[in-house]
Design a protein around this nucleic acid. Sequence first.
RNA 1: GCCGAAGUGGUGGAAUUGGUAGACACGCUAGACUUAGGAUCUAGUGCCGCGAGGCGUGGAGGUUCAAGUCCUCUCUUCGGUACCA
Length: 866
Amino acid sequence: MEERYNPSAVEPKWQEYWNTHQLFKVDEDPSREKYYLLEMFPYPSGKIHIGHVRNYTIGDVVVRYKRMKGFNVIHPMGWDAFGMPAENAAIDNNTHPAAWTYENIRSMRTQLKKMGFSYDWDREIATCRPEYYRWEQWLFLKMLEKGMAYRKESYVNWCEKCQTVLANEQVEQDKCWRCSQVVEQKKLWQWFFKITDYAEDLLVHCDQLPGWPDKVTVMQKNWIGKSIGAELKFKVDGSDEVLNVFTTRPDTVFGATFMCLAPEHPLVESLSKGTGQEAEVAAFVEKVSKQERSADGIEKYDKEGVFIGAHCINPATGEKIPVYTANFVLMEYGTGAIMSVPAGDQRDFDFAKKYGLDIRVVVQPEDGALDPETMAEAYAGRGTMVNSGRFDGMDSKDALEAITDWLDSQGHGKKAVSYRLRDWGISRQRYWGTPIPVIHCDSCGVVPVPESDLPITLPEDANLLEQGGSPLPTLDYFAKATCPACGREDAKRDTDTMDTFVESSWYYLRYCSPRCDTGMFDPKAVEYWAPVDQYIGGVEHAVLHLLYSRYFMRVLNTLGLIDFKEPFTRLLTQGMVCKETMTCPEHGFLFPEQARKEGDGFACTLCGSEVEVGRVIKMSKSKKNVVDPNELLERYGADVTRLFCLFAAPPERDLEWSEDGVEGSNRFVNRVWRLAATCMEKITDVAPYAGPAAGLKGKDAKALYIKANQTIQKVSNDIDKSFHFNTAISAVMELVNAMYGVDVETADDELKSVLIFCLENVLLLLSPILPHFCEELFERMGHTGSILEKQWPEFREDSLTTDEMLVVVQVNGKLRSKFTMGADEDEEAIKAAAMADEKIMRHVQDKPVRKIIVIRKKQTLVNIVV
RNA sequence: GCCGAAGUGGUGGAAUUGGUAGACACGCUAGACUUAGGAUCUAGUGCCGCGAGGCGUGGAGGUUCAAGUCCUCUCUUCGGUACCA
């Protein structure tokens, strides 16, 4: 037998074997229990990187384990193929997004195959294919029909110089990334999905996802952000108009001394008309329209506003209060208007100080009295009501309800719920995406494309505009259309495409019947396979992708297409693989291989400039801090690479990439190889031992046998329950180390039969992690067929413990001594033995013993308190 | 800013429900075998101390017979923040 494991011979051999025997191909089989494991599909950015390898290795191990446990496992792979990087690459490399994408898919598929991942490649999909996105267009039409999709005006980042819309990622410090022009906000008509209709349902079911990490459901709950309060009506003074405000603190309504409207609020213009404030208001609205209008964006600007010249009536006090428009009020939240209580809200307080507005304290904290003249900041806590008419003296907590009820009885408002979640804007002014299937007609307005005209195919030969703009509006053969309703020939096709999150919100259903051409999926296939039993992917998707997917399943459920609502039963959020960025002053971000070591730092291989080493952040193609696994693959093979990725850290943990330690994985693999070689050479005609540990006479044989059973238990648990492959691997390493402790030359037949038992189990336990390697050794040991078709090993309940126990003795909580004794000794005997221990006697001396605590768990612990 | 995580030797990490801190590796040191070593094997390796012993899980307090683990405060780093995917 060769001295070392030779991956370049063994790995292709088994990949070929799996392929020709179609071992990963699956079909519906109602007689077997199904298991759907899915890793988040990759964006075809060019090459797979170590982060992908980590993600897919984790999934592959579980898949192979579940298969050996007898499940009918579906494990598909595909490509999230639409998106912005293809457009950028097309501009940079003078190619076409489609050509670039398909080429990337080809090379990444080859890499994945070399890793030995057990995908059913017959189910592969790419979201940029018309066969896929036609069903997305179909669903869009259904949603439009049901009112789940609608159009409204909304802001985008706009570069005037490039005449193009910019993604947030393309805005660097408020400037365009291509030309450094200051980015503006531009209002466009865009399509939205009404995800807010499902806010409550999405929220409630967060608590019914036991297979999800709490951190993810917590983030989703906070994202949805339900708040309970009241919607109050403020009459405009001298007008029939009413301003509705949502507040979570109706108890403070007596302290509302002014009101603020979002600059986009429809009443801002009309109320200011003819008041003398008109021009100032218009100028302010214009100014704010250039600012970023999002919850995050508004933090960047000083809080400011202008009086709009109108007053409204505080429904609680009957007083006239001034109405302002302010840049920190967003139209998207609540009603776009807020009642301002400067004594109770810091932003209102700052605003009141700035513009000299009244501050009235309505909630007094228990300790000391607030005085509007002297208070330095708002008090948002609870307390006793003051200056609140009949509610004075009441606890603010009780007043919240009482004041709401009172205002309700007067017709001034009612209890209300508000969510932070906003509707999902899906229009993108981009080329490389799914065309939105509607036509705009001057006579008929927005007209849906007839179903029979689907798919609306994206022209794949269009050239990107130099500044990154979409060519679709310029292509007459695409953009010009005949109105399906009235036949007018000068209608225009919608030239926006959909957000790529739309594709990734339902692809896992498509895998169930990837070639289905009668619908999004074959209902029978989805009934058998869906939902996904185990989903695995980066924690960075905790909110958006996972929430959109949950929303989409609710939409399909409402449309009667599926009978479930939650797409992913169990979720594993994998930590990110991180690496420092490298930036060259000439060439921007550099790939690691474009920087060479020079002195203490790095130099650019393109121009020799000194490279700035940046922070350690998640690997991403746009930052170029990605590690190509090819070098590892060539040097060590797929199995060692897989082992190393798993052994480096538990899956949920972030990992700063370093190849230190890969030698250790390689060493271990060869250690097992040599161990197998020795056993095969020296042990012949001995069957593996299969009885209870008690049936073994030799002490070494018994100890090794127990160790093996413990290892089977630990590895099974680690894979199945916690996905802690790093500890599963170290457990096998321990067993292998113990096997190395046996001298095969002098071993008797009993010990040899235990050794063979150990070896076979080591290979079975490692086979999900090192599939090629274990197949090869298993075959050499004389087994036929694939190890994949073998049963996962079971441990013997009666062979897990030895008859000796370790006793650990502490004095005042500090470890002082340890010894072993018979496992069945009683507590008194343990105490006596501890007190009789020489080291313990030295520490106790003649101090009085107050207490002796004996704990019998994993090990036995005695704590003597003196 | 807001939401969510993470922090343990020189390094990656281990440690059910509070119960031997540092498993398993990497690296390093010494030795063996070898023409050679980026092969293999053996031994050692948290820090301070000659030693008895003391100190140690980002920092500061606290609860407990006992705290990496629980509580309070705090620092740093990472992820998300709705048009990167």
